[in-house]
Write a protein that binds this DNA or RNA. Structure first.
Lengths: 134, 134
DNA sequence: CTCGGTGCAAAGGGTTTGCATACAT
DNA sequence: ATGTATGCAAACCCTTTGCACCGAG
């Protein structure tokens, strides 16, 4: 009953470089623009549209994660395993990352019949440096 | 040294209705558009711009919360106290809400010198109804 | 009477998409 | 040779903003 084709994926230089750019960014969680800038250093003619398309594809394939935290632009994440993040409201950097301790909330959600596929814990505040600067 | 005026706030019908609309939405976490639609039933001439301005002001005053989860539009929250949410990826509803159990992550962040002002735990998955329908 | 809030409409920024071409298979 | 991925640019959507008028204080 599989009506739709598996949609095989061609391996292009652009796709590989977009993935590499996200992975190389470490815990920075780059925006699409940042990935664009990085890939451009190698492929000057790449377009922003292509970057978005590849980011979406990689996310759909579960190779990277997309996080919509606080700001207006999405951020892309090389790790797919659930992680907690700690964002600085001032400089926007991700200061800290750890494997999560979901605790009671996940259990409660499951009890409510929810099929939990993942979660994201985001902490808001100020990093050490910005606290000092203020 | 207070150069800027405290910026006193006039109470207008629009402001009151925007707040009421967010509060009346319960745990739906309405978008700006939804708030707009609701207030419009009472004040047909209100503009979307005014809704956004009042939502921002209410958030700045700590009277409502703003959540940027998953989708492209922001969602507004009548509760300011930290809460965990459980979003359905299919229908978008918030299925469940609970006071959080921050656990080790908050402690770890504080240890790293971070000034934690709040947090948000979002669970992704499918609600009971959508799981059945699929 | 004052000046902050409103309505309207246009601008803004991030993301998506249509189309002809280039290229992986 | 075939059809997918690309580059380019226009379209989209949500949100913000400039401006003249309105109305709370």
């Amino acid at each position: 009953m599989a009506i739709e084709t598996p949609a095989i994926q061609r391996s292009t230089r652009q796709l590989a470089l977009v993935l590499a750019a996200v992975q190389a960014s470490g815990r920075e969680h780059p925006t699409a623009e940042a990935v664009f800038a990085r890939v451009r250093r190698v492929l000057p003619r790449i377009s922003l549209g292509t970057v978005y398309r590849n980011l979406q594809r990689l996310a759909a394939d579960g190779r990277i994660g997309i996080a919509h935290v606080g700001g207006r632009s999405a951020r892309y994440d090389p790790t797919i395993t659930p992680r907690d993040h700690c964002l600085c409201e001032q400089c926007g950097r991700n200061e800290y990352e750890a494997t999560p301790t979901p605790g009671g909330s996940v259990r409660a959600a499951k009890r409510a019949g929810h099929q939990v596929r993942g979660h994201a814990l985001v902490l808001f505040g100020r990093c050490r440096d910005c606290t000092r600067a203020a």
